[in-house]
Structure formats: structure tokens, C-alpha cells
Design a protein around this nucleic acid. Structure first.
Lengths: 219, 219
DNA sequence: GTCTATATGCGGATAGAC
DNA sequence: GTCTATCCGCATATAGAC
């Protein structure tokens, strides 16, 4: 448990937001979980909403920074060659799973929180998240386009949407699969690799239009 | 607008739950949206939570019934042959998108609601949903296994998780992409086809273990 | 079936003592 | 920085008239 109150509040809030969601978590729950006084949230963060932003920022920023830094590196070393689709997929996905690893590998709260933000439909709450992550997504979409010239921009973006969906869902529910030690047990590194192979295959499949045309041809 | 109060409440609740989520929607919002009295929800449904269950049931049951009915059909006509992966993917995905079509095709509330349920992390609220859908998922996972003998049961279930994630995310956010008429514009039929091709490619990719082994070989 | 009025509790936030 | 006490609004739910 963190020593100072502010950190303890961040930790407790993160866990509770991940488990129950923002609206269903009360400040009384948070301060009790953090072993702090009910007034401490407002003193340290100003409001419940400001606390949420602080919690999100602490996790999202490093992930997105790692993604962009690695992409910068790839692009500068590739020159005018397109980057391979698998490498792009790997670059996008690895940073979140590293967060997973770094903290013990066992279903940590941040993964569930990150998954939840993706899924959360609250327009207001998403605004800040979108601003940060939307730009990153667009950079990756553009990079994907260069390596997949047969696809139009629209199809690439839909596929990126599918990719993000699988990732978010895995973050939210994969932890449960990992925990229960059931049939689906495998460690998070292997899950990442499975997801990368799956996603790369999906991203590189011929365009829907061409498949439909070929199908028509065959009849 | 539906004629009787009960239906109007279901419609209004569905839309509001989809947009704001369950905890953030008040019964005042619902009854106001349904042009009904504040006491009507408790009169017709008993409680807010019972209303949610009614809203969910109305959409999920037909979808899962269609999935299972079509799978029964495929299995009985296939005899002891495994069903093709693409056909299984198609069978699982089509029913939700048909719901989409049936109601005008333009980003309807049910899609967002269905997507939200998948994403929702509230243990309590998910229990009923899981019971209904978990069984359906397990039937499909088993069918996938038969057509993908190179994969172990664990890897098949992870891939099914990815599949569900893409689907749920598309239901939640795809509507927004469809609405804005931006670069990613295409109609829902084409989105379904794109998702089917993407997913089939992901499901049928060689096992992670074999890919990693081949990679090691190559060095 | 539909309404008004109300019971009862929990929510976020803050004032002000220490 | 931390605490108690409290303000005030909104939530669900129900009692009881019509």
C-alpha cells in the first residue's frame, strides 16, 4: 500500500472504477478503500471527476507514449519502405501488455480499467481519452494504409476498429480467463502473441470488395 | 412511438441505457422520455433493475435463438463433417446485424445497448446475460474446435474472445463511424462482410505455438 | 392504470475546528 | 493535511387518491 494519501486514493479509485465503473463508485467507497478521510478526495483532486482524469492519465499516457515512440523509431529506420503489418500490430499492442507484465502479470486492475474506458459509452468521460488516443490511432491507421495498398482508407479504419475491440475486450475479460485457471489458461505473453497473430491475419486479408467479387465470379 | 405505456417505457429505457448506461439513467429520465408517470416503472416492472432485465431480454433472446437455430441446422445437414470456419463466423455474427438492418440500418439504439452489455463490467448485471450467452458461446467454441484441429481448446477460446470483442466494439462504436459519413463510411451490410472476412482470417491462422516454433527454426 | 405527495436514503461537496 | 458535521439535491420506491 502506498505511503501517502494521494497515491492511496489513486490506487483505490483505480480498482473501484475498474470493478464497478465510475458512476457506481462513491467517494465514500474510495476514501474508505484508501484508508483516508471522506474530504481527502476534494482536498487532493478537487472533485470526483478530476480524480477520474488523474487515474486515467496515470495509465494511458505511458502506453500511448510508448506506442508513438516505437512507431517513430520504426518509421525513421524504414525510410520510405512501408512497415510490415505484423510489426505495426505488435507495436500497437505490446505496450498495454507490458503494463500487465510489469505489475505481476495476474489480472491487474489497470487492464480492466483501460478496457473499460474503451468500452465506456459516456460521451463526456470519453472526450479526454479520445483526444489523446484518437491521434495515436490515426497515426497507426495511416501507417497500416501504406503497407496495405489494396485496401481503401475506409476498410483500413474499420479493421483498426476491430483490432481495438479485440484488444479492449481481452483486457477486460481476459483477466478473468487467466485467473480461473480453466481450459483457457495461458500466460499473458502467450495471449499477446496469439492476439498479434490473429490480428495480423485479419488486417492482411484481401479486401472485402475483392472477396465478394471473386465469389460472384465463381458462380 | 408505441401506443401502450409499457412498450414506451421499454423503448425509452433502451435508448437511455444505451446512451448513458444503467447507473446514470434515472427513472425520471425514463418516464419523462416515455411520456409516462414517474410511478409507472414500478407499477409495470417492479423496479429499475427488473426493467433493465426486461429491456435486455427483448433484444438478446431473439439473437441467441437465431444463432442456435442456424447452428442446429448446419450441424444436422453437415453430418459428421466439420462446418467451415467462415460459415460458423457468419452464423454467429449475422443475427445481430440483422437486428441492425431490421430497424432502419441507421445506428439504432439496440446495437449500442448490446455492445454495452458485452463491455459492462458490473458483475451483478452481467450474470443473467452471461448465463444466456455463455452457453451459446461454448457451443460455437466446440464447433470451431472441430474445424480447427490444429488448435488446442485454449487457443480456440481466446480467439472466440477476440471475435466477440471486435463484434461488441463494432456495435458500440461502429454506429458512430456509420453516422458521421466520414472516411469510414460504408453501410452495415458491408461492415458485416468486412468483419466476417477479418475474423475468419484470424480464426484460421496457424496456432501461435507453431508460428513461434517456425520463427525459432528460421534463426 | 395513472397520478400526487411523500418517505427515506445516499450522493458530492464544503465549512470550519484541529 | 486531516477530521467532523452538515448542506442540499436527487435517487428509488411506495401509499393512497382518483
Amino acid at each position: 500500500m502506498a505511503t501517502n494519501t494521494k497515491e492511496r486514493i489513486l490506487d483505490a479509485a483505480e480498482e473501484l472504477f475498474a470493478d464497478r465503473g465510475f458512476p457506481s463508485t462513491s467517494m465514500r467507497d474510495i476514501t474508505q478503500g484508501a484508508d483516508a478521510n471522506i474530504a481527502a478526495v476534494n482536498y487532493h483532486f478537487g472533485s470526483k471527476e478530476a480524480l477520474l482524469l488523474a487515474v486515467l492519465k496515470r495509465r494511458i499516457e505511458p502506453v500511448n507514449q510508448a506506442r508513438v515512440a516505437r512507431l517513430d523509431e520504426l518509421e525513421s529506420s524504414a525510410g520510405d519502405q512501408p512497415i510490415s503489418t505484423e510489426e505495426l500490430v505488435r507495436t500497437f499492442l505490446t505496450p498495454v501488455f507490458e503494463t500487465w507484465q510489469e505489475h505481476g502479470g495476474a489480472a491487474p486492475k489497470y487492464m480492466k480499467l483501460l478496457g473499460r474506458i474503451h468500452a465506456e459509452v459516456d460521451q463526456d468521460l470519453r472526450t479526454k481519452f479520445i483526444q489523446e488516443t484518437g491521434a495515436v490511432l490515426e497515426r497507426f491507421a495511416t501507417a497500416f494504409e501504406r503497407g496495405l495498398p489494396a485496401l481503401d482508407a475506409s476498410e483500413v479504419r474499420w479493421r483498426v476498429l476491430f483490432l481495438v475491440g479485440s484488444m479492449a475486450y481481452t483486457m477486460t475479460w481476459g483477466t478473468a480467463l487467466l485467473e480461473v485457471g480453466d481450459q483457457a489458461r495461458r500466460d499473458s505473453e502467450q495471449v499477446l502473441e496469439t492476439l498479434i497473430q490473429y490480428t495480423t491475419a485479419g488486417m492482411t486479408v484481401p479486401s472485402t470488395a475483392s472477396v465478394v467479387a471473386a465469389d460472384r465470379e465463381a458462380r
